[in-house]
């Protein structure tokens, strides 16, 4: 009985999880292309001191959850060590999504670029439905200063 539940959860995690990931990546790529006209840099130099220049802080965040397949796969992987691709894509999606949300806000305000980008990743722990396994979800916050020049 338990093995059946396990297999159902595993295949649910695999098929639904993969399709969510795929459509999310598609969505990210489209939106990244739309916001390509706003360059984002990490520099923090004080070079925007011309009269009339405006700057404002923009913050974007997202919490993305892993799925059951990723959880099982990564716990197997941690037995032998090495690269966990399941979580690499998870962190990558979260980071790109957070940056996009920040850029979208800056775009609405009329920014022509965003400088001083900072990214922060933290893990939001949770428990499974039966309370035993620790499931992984990751929060990424991206923030930067939008610059508008006259």
């Amino acid at each position: 009985m338990e093995i059946i539940v396990f297999l159902i959860l595993l295949s649910l995690g695999y098929f639904v999880g993969q399709s969510i990931e795929k459509s999310h990546y598609k969505n990210i790529i489209v939106r990244e292309a739309e916001l390509l006209h706003i360059p984002v840099t990490t520099d923090k130099k004080t070079q925007f001191d011309g009269a009339g220049t405006q700057g404002r802080l923009f913050v974007g965040n997202v919490v993305i959850s892993g799925d059951y397949f990723k959880l099982v796969g990564s716990s197997l992987r941690s037995l032998v060590g090495g690269q966990i691709t399941f979580y690499e894509t998870l962190a990558d999606r979260a980071r790109r999504e957070a940056i996009l949300r920040m850029k979208a806000q800056a775009n609405n305000w009329g920014a022509e670029k965003v400088v001083g980008l900072r990214l922060e990743t933290s893990s939001v722990g949770g428990k499974g439905p039966s309370g035993e396994s620790k499931l992984v979800s990751v929060e990424v916050v991206a923030y930067g200063t939008g610059i508008k020049q006259p």
Partner: peptide, 15 residues
């Protein structure tokens, strides 16, 4: 969220 954790995706309430 713990159910969402099974299939993945964004946890909008946490965001």
């Amino acid at each position: 969220a713990s159910f969402k954790n099974l299939v993945g995706g964004e946890l909008a309430s946490y965001t």
